[in-house]
Amino acid sequence: MEQQIANSKNNTHIINPQIIVKDNYIYILSKRILDTVGALIGLIVLSLVFMIVAIAIKVEDPRGPIFFSQIRVGKNGKEFKMYKFRSMVTDAEERLQNLLTLNETTGAMFKMKNDPRVTKIGQLIRKTSIDELPQLWNVMRGDMSLVGPRPPLVREVAEYNEDHKQRLLVKPGCTGLWQVSGRSNIGFEEMVKLDIHYIQNRNLFFDIKIIFKTIGLLTGSKDAY
């Protein structure tokens, strides 16, 4: 696989992978069909949930936006704008600097169980992962897949070593092996190992298995925050 050259104009990041991803054409085509059909069905079936959540967010904070967008790093280091329901106060990013010393996970990620930036509605939709549902639009656009590694922030990728960058060899996903294996209770290095295991062993059956496990967790996972 050719080395991805960093190019700030094209919003990409250097990747020098330690493993080679052998893309099976039939699998890639099948995965894209599963992504498109699954995301479309999800957007239609969950449209009422979207409306209820949108109203709830506006009732709690009329001045704030319903959706939250953020630049994430995708396949081959290419940046894209990821969408979520807003679950935090509008100045969450500015407040983050004062909370970094309270980080409850390891590595490049930031996790805090009782994050003071999270709104009341945000606590509920994060607990059930409903805040992630707008990412179905990212799947429709082709930025993400239904299943894949968690899409990292730009500042996280800046701290990656070569092993960590292997996570960027495939499209990031709305859910993945990390999310169904413990999520916030799993440290960064273990998350990377799970992602690499998925990348090396991914197939359509594996993807469908993870999707069904995720649906089960949507009823409320104690590991999400």
Rank of each mutant, 00 (worst) to 15 (best):
I52V: 14
G38C: 01
M144V: 11
V73H: 08
R183D: 03
I44V: 14
V192T: 06
D195P: 07
D23W: 00
H13G: 00
L177Y: 11
Q200P: 01
N203G: 09
F85S: 08
K81H: 03
K9V: 07
F67S: 04
E2S: 15
T36P: 00
G38S: 00
I215S: 02
E60S: 11
S69K: 14
I55H: 03
I41M: 08
E156G: 09
I186F: 00
M112K: 09
V53A: 06
R126I: 07
I210E: 09
N98L: 01
E93Q: 13
N138P: 07
W178K: 03
Q3L: 12
L99Y: 10
N103S: 10
D207V: 05
R202H: 06
K75F: 08
V59M: 11
P62I: 10
V139D: 07
F67R: 06
M140V: 15
K209Q: 13
I28N: 11
N138S: 09
V192R: 02
K84A: 08
V89K: 12
K120G: 02
V21E: 04
D91N: 15
P62M: 05
L204R: 08
R117D: 04
Q200V: 07
V45I: 13
G220V: 11
K171Y: 13
G176R: 09
T214M: 04
M1A: 09
D35R: 04
I211H: 02
I33A: 15
V154T: 14
G142W: 07
V170L: 05
Q4A: 02
Q123D: 11
D195W: 01
T90V: 15
I186T: 11
T105R: 03
Y225I: 11
I5K: 13
I5S: 07
I33Y: 07
L169I: 02
S145G: 12
K171S: 14
E156L: 06
D143H: 05
Q166S: 06
L217M: 15
R117N: 07
M144A: 06
M82F: 01
N11P: 00
H13N: 12
N76I: 03
K113H: 13
M112W: 08
V21M: 00
T12A: 05
I28P: 00
Q135F: 00
L100F: 10
V21P: 01
G122H: 09
V180P: 08
K78A: 14
T106D: 10
G74R: 07
L124C: 08
V170M: 05
N185I: 00
Q70K: 02
L194V: 06
T36E: 06
Q97K: 14
F206P: 03
P151Q: 05
E93Y: 11
Q4I: 12
A39D: 04
S30T: 08
K81T: 15
V147W: 00
I20T: 09
T119I: 08
W178E: 07
V139A: 10
N114E: 15
K58Q: 12
I15N: 02
D207E: 03
G176M: 06
P17I: 01
S221T: 13
D23L: 00
Q123Y: 12
K113C: 12
F85C: 12
L194S: 10
T101Q: 15
Y198V: 14
